[in-house]
Amino acid sequence: MTLPVNMPLEMSGPQAAKPGERVSYSISVANLGPNDAPDAVVECAIPAELTDLELTCQGEKGAICGHPSVRDGLHLPIDLRKGSEAVINLTGTIDPEFEGPLTCTSLIRSPSHANTAEQHSGSATTDVELPPVSIIPRIGPGWHQTWPEEAKGWIISYDLQLAAREERVVWWEISFDVPPFTTPGRTRLNPQESPWYTVIKDGTDGSVVIRTADDSYTVEPGAGLTVHVQLLYPSQFEAGDGALRNLRAVETTQP
């Protein structure tokens, strides 16, 4: 005889986002009894347009999160004892060229128990709409910079390609986060480079923000604009694959 267990699930996420943004989805599960469910499993269908996935699971009141897999969607075993609960957070980056609805669907089940909860599955849909100005990064070559002493390290060059959706964009701003695993305060824009744009943050506090200096570099629909950036990493190892996190471009008012 299959034992019953009441395991409800709730899922939430952002209603709207922009291409290239990093978004998070929350899945909450609980065991309301009357039996333990040591073999509970949470599964989630993850769209291919959501990449660079990170997952956390916090068990409460006796719940124990197992080892997750996100290779072909989320598969997370949980020892969900009667009266316990768990909260799962799934974070990923939206494809910078994607536009449309992005839907994640999840459910909770147990191979040895019958889930009697009225709601044991859920979904969250995020409407991804291209902003007035979008951005696509192109990672260029890397090389060792050996001079001057205070600027030694591994340089990676980037071409950040801005595109206007419908109308000309005169004033714009680009921002991204430096990799969290690099030496704090050591990854920054190359101080040997003399950019034509205005640097608001150079990366030493964990983020880079640059802004157009005047109305000479506009983004025209159908033409676009390439912004060249050089990032100085402490070492080639710490640069990793050179991916820029939370890269985004926005239209701004005149400075």
Rank of each mutant, 00 (worst) to 15 (best):
P4W: 03
P8A: 14
L9T: 11
G13W: 01
A17Y: 03
A17K: 04
V23F: 02
S28Y: 05
L32G: 13
G33M: 09
A40G: 10
V42E: 11
E43H: 05
A48H: 09
E49H: 11
D52M: 12
L53V: 14
Q58P: 00
G59M: 02
K61H: 11
H67T: 12
S69Y: 03
V70N: 10
R81I: 12
R81N: 10
S84E: 08
E85W: 03
A86T: 08
I88T: 09
N89I: 10
T91Q: 04
I94A: 02
D95Y: 01
P96E: 11
P96H: 05
E99W: 02
G100W: 01
S110C: 03
P111H: 04
P111Y: 00
S112T: 15
S112E: 15
N115S: 07
N115T: 09
N115H: 07
A117R: 05
E118F: 12
S121H: 10
S123Y: 09
S123G: 15
S123V: 01
T125L: 10
V128R: 04
L130K: 14
V133W: 00
S134R: 09
P137N: 07
Q145T: 06
T146S: 14
T146V: 11
P148H: 08
E149C: 03
E150D: 13
A151D: 14
I156C: 04
S157D: 15
S157Q: 13
L160Q: 13
L162G: 10
A163P: 00
A164F: 03
A164S: 15
E167P: 01
R168A: 10
D177H: 01
R186T: 11
T187G: 07
P191G: 07
P191M: 08
S194C: 02
W196E: 15
W196V: 10
D202T: 05
I210L: 06
T212A: 11
A213E: 15
D214L: 04
D215A: 13
D215W: 03
S216M: 11
L225G: 10
L225D: 07
L225I: 08
L231W: 02
L232D: 11
S235F: 02
F237M: 11
G240P: 09
D241M: 04
G242M: 05
V250W: 00
T253D: 13
